[in-house]
Amino acid sequence: MLLPLGSIVYLKEGTTKTMIINRAIVVEINGKEQMFEYEGCLYPLGSEEKKNYLFNSGQIDKVIFKGYADEDEERFQQVFTEWQEKNQIPLAEVEQSEQDEEDKLFGGK
């Protein structure tokens, strides 16, 4: 189950809070479709061009605040789960040694 939009997290080895602003981002890496569960921006700064982060739940160290959830969020979770089961797009993984690819995915340094 994905965290709701607006959730605020610390990423592993991170020192700045990240706010979730998008979910289920499908990208092409090395010619194959892969998915990141989340896109986030620095909190409290907000979204800035080329400064958003793509990440998965395995990279979350701590949830600081869980975003708003209502019946629409419940419906999204249900539809997303069905979509994920049908499409079987693997989660993306970014290794530390792949700095060039990471710069593309995370907006550069």
Rank of each mutant, 00 (worst) to 15 (best):
E102M: 08
P90Q: 08
L42R: 14
Y10D: 09
L11E: 08
N56I: 09
F80A: 02
Q88R: 13
K109A: 08
T81G: 03
V26Y: 04
V27P: 00
G108Q: 05
D72T: 10
S7Y: 01
G67C: 04
K17D: 07
K104C: 06
N52H: 10
K50C: 07
I20L: 05
F106W: 14
D61L: 13
K66S: 13
R23P: 00
E98K: 03
F106Y: 12
E95P: 03
T16H: 15
F65Y: 15
E33G: 04
Y43P: 06
Q78W: 06
E102I: 05
Q78Y: 07
F65P: 00
E82N: 12
E48C: 10
K86H: 05
F80T: 01
K12Q: 15
T18G: 02
R23K: 11
N30D: 14
T81C: 02
T15V: 12
Y68N: 14
D61W: 11
F76K: 07
P90L: 12
R75Q: 11
T18H: 12
V63Y: 01
E48P: 02
G108K: 02
I20P: 00
G67L: 03
L2P: 04
D72Q: 13
N87F: 00
Y38Q: 06
K12R: 15
Y38C: 05
L54D: 00
E71P: 00
C41S: 13
K17W: 04
D72V: 07
I64W: 07
N87P: 04
K86V: 00
D70S: 09
N52V: 05
G46N: 09
I29T: 08
L42F: 11
A92F: 01
D72K: 11
F106T: 11
D61C: 08
E71S: 13
D100K: 13
I8C: 10
E48A: 14
K66E: 15
K104W: 12
G107H: 02
V27F: 01
E39R: 14
G108Y: 06
V27I: 12
I20K: 00
F80C: 00
Q84V: 09
E49I: 09
E48D: 02
F76M: 07
K50I: 03
I8N: 07
G6A: 06
S7Q: 07
Q84N: 15
K86R: 14
E28A: 04
Q77N: 10
A24L: 06
Y68P: 03
I20A: 01
